[in-house]
Every structure is written in structure tokens, then in C-alpha cells.
């Protein structure tokens, strides 16, 4: 395992800048997740590290070596693609063994077997080793695709939304397995997703992307608790953060010049209306079982508040409630 480093990298496709002046360090043993919507430049960044794209400007370093002009084969990376690209004519075993039998490595067959068995056990596909790749379910195929990367011990693993094609239950299961495997191996991983739950639960560090720019990097907790701007604040949290005008919270300790207050659900307190102050109307209750999302309309603004399940008394009727704020995140609006 080794450190990877992007130094002021830019890449354009035609007139569109895919990534611009991008600098990021993936430390040895770190699990870095790039989070952003479709088209933010996440996959391009991965491909630049892998060597599938060459940067227009800037440099890519892996393990202290400048690999900017090197082909993918000499960079010592393993890539897991979004679409499980397995060899359909080979068995699961041979798919897993394939990278180890490449002429560049030429491992003894006993060593290949030991590694394949170990990875199959890790991903719980031992029983499927003799099956053809095409006979597997989607979840099994994706596990084989991840396994084909794990059989090697490259400088860095690159993963492009490896869980996004799986159903919700399997995704949750593999998420915790992947994190566990990463900790066990001490693996360095650069991982791309648009799923905030994956980013929060897997990452040691998250990089938030927007339009090819790296807006903020930090631990999941840092990004959640101290977002650099309103864009980052909306990327994490369920229900999403409420961005409200400063004037709605006259008592909030916001710095002068602040225009927008970002209040996460745990920063809001909602009380039954007694007198004055901000008065809201519960317009809709989403009952999600473990919590209820109250949609409250206050002075033409909608905000969402998560309440524990013990609030049946709120019922379907629309009531008037006073909203009090506890802690509040204060953010100046970022320059347009």
C-alpha cells in the first residue's frame, strides 16, 4: 500500500472542464471517498489516477513516484468498475486468478490458489468458485469484481461506485464488509460515489466535488458538522439541512453579514405554539418508522424536522407550532 497524490491536476474534454486545479492526497491506509452528483468529475479523477486519462496540466504521484506519463500497467493500481466487467467465458475461480496469472506477475499456482481461496472467503463466494461468471446474480458478480481487485496488493485500489447496481439490503451488507476488509488489509482506497450514506460510513476522509472542483475535504464528521459552504452542507444529512434566511432567527449568534442559517434537524426544537415567535404549520408528516419527518411551513419557507416515533399526538391535523432553535450552523453565502 502506498500514498497517492494529485497535484494541481486539470483535465478538459473539448470545451468542458472535467476537473480543474485538483489537488488531493490519499494517505497510506486511508479510505478516501469522492462524493458529488453525476458529472462532478469523480470518475475522471479516478481515471486520471489509474492512467486511463492523462492530465492536461498537473501531476499524479503514486508511492512517491511521478506517474503522470506512465501507462496504467506500470502504475500498480487495481480498478473496480461500476459495471462488473467479468470474463463471461471463465469460471469465478479463473476470473479471480486472472490478474495473478498475468505474464507480468507469473505467481506460482499454489500461491494463486491460496490467494483466490482467501479472497473468496472474505467475500463469501467460496461456494460459487466453479460457477461460470454469467451464472451469478448481480450481487455475486459485483463481489467477484471487487474480489478480482482484492487478490492483488496494489499501491492503491480505485473503486467507481462498486455498490450502486446492488439492491438496498445487499448494498448495506457489502458496505460494512468492505470497510472491514479495508481495515484488515490496511488498504489505501480511492472510492467514488453519489450516495451520501456510503460516503459517511466508509470514508476515513471525504472529498466533496462540485463541477470539477474539490470544494472540501475532511473526515465525515468534519464535513457534516463544519461544512465549508451551503453546497457542501446539502450533500450530507438525512433529512437534508434547512437553509433559512438569517432574519428568521433573530436570537441566533450569527456573525454580522451572515445571510443564511443552516440548521440541521438536530439543531431545531419544535414546540406547540404558545405565543408569538416564529409560527409554523405542519403541512405533511413522513412516517419512516424509526423517525417521522415533519414538513413545517414557516413564513413561506419549508423546513424538515426529524422527530422520534413518539409523536403520534401530532396526527394528520395541521397545527400551529412555535419553532425554537438550539444550536445553529451559520454560514455566509458563498460568492456566486
Amino acid at each position: 500500500m502506498a500514498e497517492a497524490h494529485l497535484d494541481n491536476v486539470s483535465k478538459r474534454f473539448g470545451s468542458a472542464a472535467a476537473v480543474a486545479e485538483f489537488s488531493l492526497t490519499v494517505g497510506d491506509g486511508q479510505f478516501v471517498v469522492l462524493l458529488g452528483p453525476t458529472g462532478a468529475g469523480k470518475t475522471t479523477t479516478l481515471r486520471l489516477v489509474a492512467g486511463l486519462e492523462t492530465p492536461d496540466t498537473g501531476r499524479v504521484w503514486i508511492g512517491g513516484r511521478d506517474v503522470s506519463r506512465e501507462p496504467p500497467s506500470t502504475r500498480d493500481v487495481a480498478f473496480v468498475f461500476q459495471q462488473y466487467s467479468l470474463y463471461p467465458h471463465l469460471s469465478v475461480y479463473d476470473n479471480l486468478a486472472f490478474p495473478l496469472r498475468s505474464p507480468a506477475r507469473r505467481l506460482p499456482e499454489a500461491e494463486v490458489d491460496r490467494t483466490v481461496q482467501e479472497v473468496a472467503r472474505l467475500l463469501r463466494i467460496e461456494a460459487k468458485l466453479q460457477a461460470r461468471a454469467t451464472q451469478l446474480s448481480g450481487g455475486q458478480m459485483q463481489r467477484v469484481a471487487i474480489g478480482r481487485a482484492l487478490v492483488r496488493r496494489p499501491a492503491i485500489y480505485l473503486m467507481d461506485e462498486p455498490l450502486s447496481s446492488l439492491d438496498a439490503k445487499l448494498r448495506a451488507e457489502l458496505r460494512i464488509e468492505l470497510k472491514r476488509i479495508q481495515l484488515d488489509l490496511g488498504a489505501t482506497i480511492l472510492y467514488v460515489t453519489h450516495d451520501q450514506t456510503e460516503a459517511m460510513t466508509l470514508a476515513t476522509h471525504i472529498g466533496v466535488l462540485n463541477h470539477g472542483l474539490l470544494v472540501q475535504t475532511g473526515t465525515p464528521r468534519e464535513i457534516y458538522e463544519r461544512p465549508a459552504d451551503t453546497y457542501v452542507s446539502t450533500r450530507l444529512g438525512s433529512p437534508g439541512i434547512n437553509l433559512l434566511p438569517r432574519a428568521m432567527f433573530p436570537d441566533a449568534p450569527a456573525p454580522t453579514g451572515a445571510e443564511t442559517i443552516g440548521a440541521r434537524t438536530e439543531h431545531l426544537r419544535i414546540r406547540k405554539a404558545s405565543n408569538g415567535a416564529a409560527t409554523g404549520k405542519v403541512t405533511w408528516i413522513e412516517r419512516l418508522g424509526d423517525q417521522n419527518h415533519l414538513h413545517v411551513s414557516v413564513a413561506d419557507r419549508d423546513l424538515v424536522y426529524a422527530h422520534g416515533p413518539g409523536c403520534r399526538c401530532w396526527g394528520r391535523r395541521r397545527g400551529l407550532h412555535r419553532i425554537r432553535t438550539a444550536t445553529i450552523l451559520c454560514r455566509r453565502r458563498p460568492p456566486a
Binding site: R175, I176, K179, R180, T197, M200, T201, P220, R221, Y224, L236, G237, S238, R264, T265, E266, A306
Partner: peptide
């Protein structure tokens, strides 16, 4: 404890 998953407000 086998794993923890931080979700902001809560953790699993």
C-alpha cells in the same frame, strides 16, 4: 463491536 457506521445524527 464488528463495525460502526456514522450517519451524522445517528450511527449504526
Amino acid at each position: 463491536v464488528y463495525g460502526t457506521e456514522y450517519l451524522g445524527t445517528t450511527q449504526i
